[in-house]
C-alpha cells in the first residue's frame, strides 16, 4: 500500500478520449472492462492496459476502456464478493480467488483454465538489507540471530506476508530434516526479531526505508527491487536466500460478471495477453519474474535462479490458511506464552 493509505481508486486507461477528440468514429460499440487488482501491480497494469487496448482495437476495431481498482489483495476479493462488478481479478494469492469462487462467482476449476496455475508472472521472497550489509545477513539462519531486526508485515492482514511466513517455514522444515516442531521454533525465533508488524507490504517497506527501523526487510522481490529503484542504488542491497518460495499471483475472469455483461471474450483475451512476449517483457520491467521461457532466459541475470518451493508443499492455500493464519493457527501461537 503506497504510504499505507487505504484507498480504492479507479483509473481509466484508454485511447478512447483521444479518438473521440480527433473525430474518429467507430462502427463497433465501445467496451469497458474492470480489472480488480492488488497494490503492487499498479504500475505494471497501467502500462499493460495501453498495450492490450491497442492490440484489441487492431483485432476487433472495438475501443476498449479498462478501469482499474487497486487495494490489498484480500480487501479486493471481499469487494468482489460483496458485489463489485469486476470482469477480471488479478490478485496476490490463489486463496483470495478461491474465496470468490467459493461464493459461486468464479468456476471452481479457475486455476487450471490458464497456463502455469493461472499465474502469468511470479515473484519470490527475498531480503533487503542496508548498504554494505552491516549485520552480515546471507541466509535464513541469520534472521534469528540476536540483535537482528527483521521488518515484515502481518500475515493476518497481508498476502505477501503469508508468502514470507511460508518461505521461512519451508526453509526451516528442510533445515530440520522435516521436523515440524523445530521448524515452527525457527519461525517463532524469526518473528521475535520483528519489532513492528505493518498491515501491508508497502507499509513495511516504508518502515524499513523511511523510518530506518530494522536490519533486514523480508518481502516480495518486486517490492525490494522497486525500493532500490526509488531510493537509488547504494543505500540498500538485495540478498537472495538459497531457498525461497515461488509466489504466484493468479488471475481469473469473474464468470458471473462477464456472462452478465457479455464481456467474456474480451476478458479472456485480456488475461491471455498477459502471457505474450510483449507483456512478459513489461512484467520484467516492473520486477515480476516472467513465465515465458525465452523471456526468462534473457533476464536470467536479473532474476537469479533460486531453489523455490511451492504452495503445494503446504497442502495448497486452503490447508495452509487454516493451519497457519486462522484464529489459533501457528502464527497466533508465536505470540502466546509457551
Amino acid at each position: 500500500m503506497a504510504s499505507g493509505l487505504s484507498r480504492r481508486e479507479v483509473l481509466a486507461t484508454s485511447g478512447a478520449m483521444a479518438l473521440v477528440a480527433s473525430g474518429v468514429a467507430s462502427a463497433e460499440p465501445n467496451v469497458t472492462l474492470l480489472n480488480v487488482s492488488y497494490d503492487p501491480t499498479r504500475e505494471f497494469h497501467k502500462a499493460f492496459d495501453v498495450l492490450f487496448a491497442a492490440d484489441w482495437r487492431k483485432r476487433t476495431g472495438q475501443i476498449l476502456t479498462i478501469n482499474q481498482s487497486y487495494d490489498g489483495s484480500g480487501k479486493q476479493a471481499r469487494a468482489v464478493v460483496d458485489g463489485l462488478q469486476a470482469d477480471v481479478v488479478t490478485l496476490g494469492l490463489a486463496y483470495d480467488i478461491d474465496s470468490i469462487a467459493q461464493r459461486g462467482l468464479i468456476a471452481p476449476n479457475w486455476q487450471s483454465r490458464l497456463p502455469s496455475n493461472s499465474s502469468p508472472y511470479t515473484s519470490t521472497i527475498v531480503f533487503l538489507v542496508r548498504a554494505g550489509n552491516p549485520k552480515g545477513i546471507h541466509d535464513w539462519l541469520d534472521l534469528v540471530k540476536p540483535g537482528v531486526g527483521v521488518i515484515t508485515p502481518n500475515p493476518n492482514t497481508s498476502g505477501g506476508a503469508r508468502w514470507s511466513y511460508l518461505a521461512a517455514l519451508g526453509f526451516a522444515t528442510r533445515h530440520n530434516g522435516g521436523d515440524e516442531t523445530r521448524a515452527l521454533g525457527f519461525v517463532r525465533g524469526l518473528y521475535h526479531n520483528v519489532p513492528v508488524l505493518d498491515t501491508g507490504a508497502r507499509g513495511s517497506t516504508n518502515t524499513f526505508v523511511q523510518r530506518g527501523l530494522g536490519d533486514v526487510l523480508l518481502g516480495w522481490e518486486n517490492e525490494a527491487m522497486l525500493a532500490i529503484d526509488e531510493v537509488g542504488p547504494g543505500k540498500f542491497e538485495i540478498i537472495r536466500p538459497k531457498l525461497s518460495i515461488l509466489a504466484e499471483p493468479p488471475v481469473s475472469v469473474v464468470d458471473k460478471v462477464v456472462d452478465k455483461r457479455g464481456t467474456r471474450a474480451v476478458s479472456e483475451a485480456y488475461l491471455k495477453f498477459l502471457y505474450t512476449v510483449a507483456a512478459q517483457e513489461l512484467a520484467v520491467k516492473h520486477h515480476f519474474r516472467p513465465r515465458n521461457r525465452t523471456v526468462a532466459a534473457r533476464y536470467a541475470s536479473t532474476f537469479p535462479a533460486l531453489d523455490l518451493i511451492t504452495i503445494e508443499r503446504f497442502g495448497g492455500w486452503k490447508v495452509a490458511q487454516a493451519k497457519h493464519f486462522a484464529d489459533g493457527g501457528t502464527f497466533d501461537k508465536i505470540y502466546q506464552p509457551s
Binding site: 484480500g74 480487501k75 471481499r78 474465496s99 502481518n154 493476518n156 492482514t157 498491515t199 490458511q321 493464519f325 486462522a326 484464529d327
Partner: peptide
Amino acid sequence: VTRLEAYD
C-alpha cells in the same frame, strides 16, 4: 480487520 482478511 484481521478477521475480515480471513473472510471471518
